[in-house]
Structure formats: C-alpha cells, structure tokens
Amino acid sequence: MNTAELFADDPAIPYQAHSETSRRAAEAIAPMAHTKRGLVLSHLLLCGEHGATDEEMQARIPMPANTQRPRRIELLKMGLIKASGRTRLTRSGEGATVWVAV
C-alpha cells in the first residue's frame, strides 16, 4: 500500500471549536497533514516494538507538539498505531504512553 492509498480517507483536521486561531491553524495545515502524519507513522514504524512517546517523537522527527500530537491522534483513530501498554518517563519525570505502529 502506498502513502496515497494509506491516507486516501483523510479525516477532518481537529481543532478547538471555541478558538478561532485553532480553526485557522487546522485549515492552514490541512494540505500538509497527510505528509506530517506520514512522518509520524514512519517514525513509529522505524521504532518497532520499542515505540516512542509523544515527547520522543517531537524531538526526533522534529515536530512541534501542537503538530505531532494531532497527527498521532489521527493515526490512532485510523487504527494504524496503538498504545503499547507501556510508559516511559518524560523530561519532567511524568509517565508517558509509548506508541507503536500496528
């Protein structure tokens, strides 16, 4: 399956309904979302069973949190990734979900 097929049924880009700036940001990123989603998915595929937390993905891709996290949520809704059932500590010492490609 190629990338175009993988993301053919592009979900709507989420935004905070109460925020005009969030809506504008969602509209601005819509043409690039499939590419950014592909970067997140590719990274998780390369990570294998080790997976990655959101913070790790943001650092290694690199991608801002407000771009990476929505792409990860879209991939989760598409059934292409899942929570591994494990956590790793973030820089702040909190546990974070480790995500893996399905």
Rank of each mutant, 00 (worst) to 15 (best):
T21K: 13
A8T: 06
L46E: 14
A17Y: 07
A8E: 11
R72V: 06
A52W: 07
T97M: 10
S19I: 00
T3N: 09
L44S: 02
S19N: 04
I61M: 11
A52K: 12
G51N: 10
L6K: 13
A17F: 06
M1R: 08
T35P: 00
I29E: 09
R91L: 15
L46I: 03
S22V: 02
T3L: 13
A33E: 04
I61W: 04
V102Q: 08
F7I: 04
L6A: 07
G85Y: 05
G48Q: 06
L76S: 05
S19C: 05
V102R: 13
T67Q: 12
P64M: 08
A17T: 08
N66K: 13
H34W: 12
A12K: 05
T97H: 06
M63T: 06
R24D: 06
Y15N: 09
E5Y: 07
P62Q: 10
K82N: 03
M32Y: 11
E27C: 11
L75Y: 02
T87P: 02
A59N: 08
P64T: 08
D10I: 11
K82F: 04
A59K: 14
P11K: 13
A65W: 14
R23H: 11
F7W: 08
G85L: 06
C47A: 14
A8G: 00
M78T: 01
T97D: 06
I81K: 05
H43M: 02
L80P: 02
M63H: 09
L76P: 00
A26S: 11
V40T: 04
H43C: 06
V102H: 08
R72N: 01
V100Q: 10
R86V: 01
A25N: 11
V40F: 03
D9K: 14
I61V: 11
A65V: 15
A25V: 02
A59Q: 11
V98Q: 02
Y15P: 05
P11N: 09
E94W: 14
S42T: 00
T67D: 12
R69L: 09
I61K: 07
L39W: 04
L45Q: 10
L75T: 03
A52N: 09
R60I: 03
N2Y: 02
P31D: 07
H18R: 09
E20T: 10
A28G: 05
R24F: 07
P62H: 10
P70M: 04
I29Y: 04
E5F: 09
I29C: 05
C47M: 14
R72A: 08
R86E: 11
Y15C: 08
T87C: 11
H50Q: 15
A28I: 03
A25P: 00
N66F: 14
R60K: 12
T21I: 10
S22P: 00
Q68T: 12
A26T: 04
M57I: 15
R71W: 01
V102G: 03
A33R: 15
E74D: 14
A25L: 11
P14F: 03
A30K: 15
V100W: 01
Q68H: 12
T67R: 09
T3C: 04
G93I: 09
K82I: 04
L80H: 07
T53V: 07
R69E: 04
A101K: 01
L41G: 00
D9P: 00
R37K: 10
R72E: 04
R88I: 03
Q58G: 04
D54Q: 10
S42A: 03
A4C: 07
D54R: 13
A30R: 15
C47I: 00
H34Q: 13
A65N: 14
E20H: 13
F7E: 03
